[in-house]
């Protein structure tokens, strides 16, 4: 007999916030914007074209209710704008158009894309992913974007490419954090080629059906939902395929606290706090954290044979 045992994170579909409710709320916010009320995700909307029509891919159930859009867009980490949670205000100064993304290194056809050209070329879809911050808070967001694999198929990495480096924009005029010249700017993140090609690895260009706000990594970011959030590089300007493991920002600045892999594991505490539970943005409910952030059935096999690595920091 087939027994389906629902893991703790997998909440029934009935608890997911209906899309109509979210979209209805969006209409309300839109009306507010017409009255010149400030909303965090919309300040630059006039400069950024709307997302093309796309549908939701339900293959990866989030198992949690969506985080309220306002919570997800006003509680952010983006070190270039500061290390407090209200950086969304500063981030509004960052222009999201024009924007170019270079894809280079060990690939057959290096390309530099205009972001709107790239969006036209890619199969855009919506996915609901959980995002678990290393600081023990979490949110559940409907992201719009495309699998990184689709972009890899376009540029065709060479066999010698073993790692992928993600470079965040460095715009001193709008990013006060860059004044700290002693940090290794630009912000770099990275993964292995196998992680990059994994079906869960997603390039987000939007959230809640709208273009991605700057504070959430707009206009384009990468997402690894089974890793701590800092691995999901924001506001990307370059993706480089390379043979050497990239020196990533936090693993360089605080190597005793943050590593290259940073996969979610409740049993491996941060040196200064437990990772056993997480606080859900919005409800403030504290729930148990699940290994691989609940995506183990898809990603655990990626790490067979790598048990000697520091996989969970």
């Amino acid at each position: 007999m087939h027994i389906h045992r629902r893991p703790g994170w997998n909440r029934p579909e009935s608890e997911v916030t209906p899309r109509e409710w979210v979209m209805g709320r969006r209409a309300l916010i839109g009306a507010g914007a017409m009255l010149a009320l400030p909303t965090p995700g919309r300040a630059q909307l006039g400069a950024v074209p709307p997302l093309p029509p796309h549908t939701r891919n339900d293959r990866y159930p989030a198992g949690r209710a969506l985080t309220a859009e306002r919570e997800a867009t006003t509680y952010n980490n983006f070190y270039e704008f500061g290390s407090h949670k209200g950086i969304w205000r500063e981030a509004q100064r960052m222009p999201r158009r024009p924007w170019r993304l270079a894809v280079d290194g060990l690939v057959e056809t290096p390309r530099e894309f205009d972001i709107d050209e790239l969006i036209r070329l890619m199969p855009i879809e919506e996915r609901i992913y959980r995002l678990r911050c290393v600081e023990a808070w979490a949110m559940t967001v409907p992201w719009s974007g495309f699998p990184l694999k689709a972009l890899m198929d376009l540029v065709r990495p060479l066999g010698s490419a073993r790692y992928v480096a993600f470079q965040t924009a460095a715009l001193p005029a709008v990013m006060p954090g860059l004044r700290q010249s002693w940090f290794p700017w630009p912000h770099m993140e990275g993964c292995t080629i196998a992680e990059a090609a994994h079906e869960l690895t997603f390039m987000a260009i939007g959230m809640y059906g709208q273009p991605l706000p700057a504070q959430n990594g707009g206009p384009i970011r990468v997402l690894f939902p089974w890793k701590y959030g800092f691995k999901s590089g924001k506001s990307l300007v370059r993706i480089t395929f390379q043979e050497q493991r990239p020196a990533t920002f936090w693993a360089t600045v605080q190597p005793q606290e943050y590593g290259f892999w940073a996969n979610v594991n409740p049993a491996v505490p941060h040196p200064r706090w437990s990772q056993a539970t997480e606080r859900l943005l919005g409800t403030q409910e504290r729930v148990p954290t699940v290994i691989w952030n609940g995506y183990g059935e898809w990603v655990a096999d990626l790490y067979r044979g790598l048990e000697g690595e520091r996989l969970f920091a």
Binding site: G82, S83, H84, K85, G86, Q180, S181, W182, F183, V253, Q254, P255, Q256, E257
Partner: peptide, 28 residues
């Protein structure tokens, strides 16, 4: 040599922690 660079070379974790403390618990 900026003072921040000197402190960072001495202890890489000091400035990120100090900044987080100041911006999150005092005034951003």
């Amino acid at each position: 040599e900026p003072l921040g660079a000197l402190i960072f070379a001495w202890d890489q974790s000091l400035l990120p922690r100090l900044q987080a403390g100041v911006q999150r618990y005092l005034l951003p």
